[in-house]
């Protein structure tokens, strides 16, 4: 039994093996992009609002308000990053119920990649907000002695993000496989239903935690300590 889709090689391009994680990720990307293009193809600013447009606007504005509540400032481009994280993870987890589809998020490589993306995004948003010098100063607060601990804290955040998402998704898949062998038919269906719920919750948690980390980086000095204490 393969615990990670990384081990499943679908095909190779110029000698580079394309495993199930990457392939399924492309599928997810295609689905998301296709659906987005389908939904927004007639979505012009001059067109009168319809039911679809209003629903999408409500969802996007809900995400914006959620981010605003956390960061206490206009979300700007942060909404693109966080929404993409949420949609990608949620779509991956929801497609897990499709037979034969291995969720990319069940791969530690994918969750590591997402965690690394968050780890890279945090200083990028922090620097864009405070400048390089101002951002680096945050590692010396409240005193320079805390520099190693702040660095460890930053790294541990990414690690915890990656392990949490990977553990939840992979454990759901593993449990489904085990139950399928023990009691085929009933329990796997039940676990798949629970998997849908936990998948959405994990996507929400990952996106919220990424927002919190980034907001801590872009927050003012007085707010920074509070944000870190909250995490």
């Amino acid at each position: 039994m393969e615990l990670t889709p990384d081990a499943i090689v679908i095909f190779s391009i110029w000698g580079i093996p394309i495993n199930a994680t990457i392939f399924n990720t492309w599928i997810v990307m295609a689905v998301l992009t296709g659906l987005s293009a389908l939904i927004t193809r007639n979505l012009r600013p001059s067109a009168p609002p319809n039911r679809w447009r209003t629903t999408l606007e409500v969802i996007v504005q809900g995400i914006q308000h959620q981010i605003e509540e956390i960061t206490r400032r206009p979300p700007g481009s942060l909404v693109h990053f966080v929404s993409t994280l949420f949609l990608f993870i949620a779509t991956c987890n929801l497609l897990e119920v499709v037979p034969g589809f291995d969720a990319p998020t069940a791969s530690l490589s994918t969750t590591t990649a997402l965690a690394l993306s968050v780890l890279i995004a945090v200083p990028m948003f922090g620097i864009s907000r405070r400048g390089l010098r101002g951002y680096l100063k945050t590692y010396l607060k409240p005193s320079p002695i805390m520099l190693p601990f702040n660095i460890i804290g930053e790294i541990s955040r990414g690690v915890s993000l990656a392990i949490r998402l990977y553990g939840n998704i992979m454990s759901g898949a593993v449990i489904a496989v085990i139950l399928l062998s023990v009691a085929p038919f009933f329990f796997p269906v039940l676990m798949d239903l629970l998997g849908l719920l936990t998948g959405l919750i994990q996507a929400y948690i990952f996106a919220i935690l990424a927002t919190v980390y980034i907001s801590a980086a872009i927050a003012d000095s007085g707010e920074t300590q509070n944000e870190k204490e909250q995490t």
Binding site: D6, I16, N19, T21, I22, T25, W26, V28, M29, L32, T33, S36, H80, F81, S83, T84, L87, F88, P104, S107, L108, S109, T110, T112, A113, L114, L116, S117
Partner: peptide
């Protein structure tokens, strides 16, 4: 962790970010 996959997923994520 397959670091090649990690790099590919980071690239995929960035592409997805742009597409969305």
């Amino acid at each position: 962790i397959d670091w090649l996959t990690v790099a590919a997923q980071i690239a995929n994520f960035l592409v997805l970010l742009w597409l969305l």
